[in-house]
Nucleic acid binder design. Structure first.
Lengths: 146, 146
DNA sequence: CTGCTAGTTGAAGTTAACTTCAACTAGCAG
DNA sequence: CTGCTAGTTGAAGTTAACTTCAACTAGCAG
């Protein structure tokens, strides 16, 4: 029942390069046991973990934050369905916020750039971005905080 | 009528650091005339240009692509309201696509991680991401292509 | 015309998320 | 037990989007 995966197998099944998997390990996002010859062997549960990492990363969450979230999973045992469900609830809220922000951006882009009023001082869209900029900056932050 | 802005003024009014403005100039996104003493002086229209750059960048569009879009603005004259409207229509479509993708991600996160089926091979969410990965990778690409 | 703040340049540094490289070892098919 | 593919490490390289630094000059208030 303990079928372990080599790094090549995990890479093939997750679509993530071996070098990226080693990088994730260095950041503490995943881990592996070692063979006598020092090669990595991954538990099957790692597939789910990597899937979660990739999905969150593609949504713009920095790996460090993903690691913090994963650290909330139970330490001793393989996470259950319920563990993952609990974790995903938090990201659901984040996605909701991001979607709402982009919708506001879109609507204001129509009304604001569309009408030619994009004049910084008076433009609601730009001022919103100023507020966001105060919390951080760049697209990633925009996506992170919502 | 030709009130020009110093880099400090443009920075203060746009919320973008002087070093970033110089960087944008190096990339060809904005430009300035020079005083006798070689200091930059920006036309007021540059404010609108910078606003557009920041908004697009916050949505995840790389500066190089923003530059390509800005290159479509009329060369000889200050862009009119209609010029900006034309430009913004293209970004509107992009935003629509991005919003739609994030909504799909959210819905599948509910159904997929939520139910514990996040098993890569069978997971629709993850497979969608594989397709996306074929076009590029990472959050920025996700946001770029939609 | 003094003095201070604001501006100039080119080079180097920063961060995230990886990839590439070199030099080497493990694991397994035949 | 040979030979090839897959794996190992640490260091260095990559890209985007900037920032920081050093050494210097402009512009303007008083």
């Amino acid at each position: 029942m303990q079928e372990l995966l080599t790094i090549g197998e995990l890479s093939a099944r997750s679509g993530v390069a071996p070098s990226a998997l080693r990088y994730y390990e260095k950041l503490g996002l995943i881990w592996a046991t070692r063979t006598g010859g020092n090669q990595r062997r991954y538990e099957r549960a790692t597939l789910r973990r990597v899937a979660f990492i990739r999905i969150a990363a593609q949504v713009g969450v920095p790996l460090e934050e993903i690691g913090a979230a994963l650290a909330d999973l139970p330490a001793g045992r393989t996470p259950t369905r319920a563990d993952w469900a609990r974790l995903s609830r938090a990201w659901r809220g984040r996605l909701d916020e991001q979607i709402a922000l982009m919708q506001r951006l879109r609507d204001q882009l129509d009304g604001c750039i569309g009408c030619g009023c994009l004049s910084l001082k008076t433009c609601g869209l730009y001022n919103r971005n100023d507020e966001l900029a105060a919390q951080g900056s760049g697209p990633v932050r925009l996506l992170r905080r919502g």
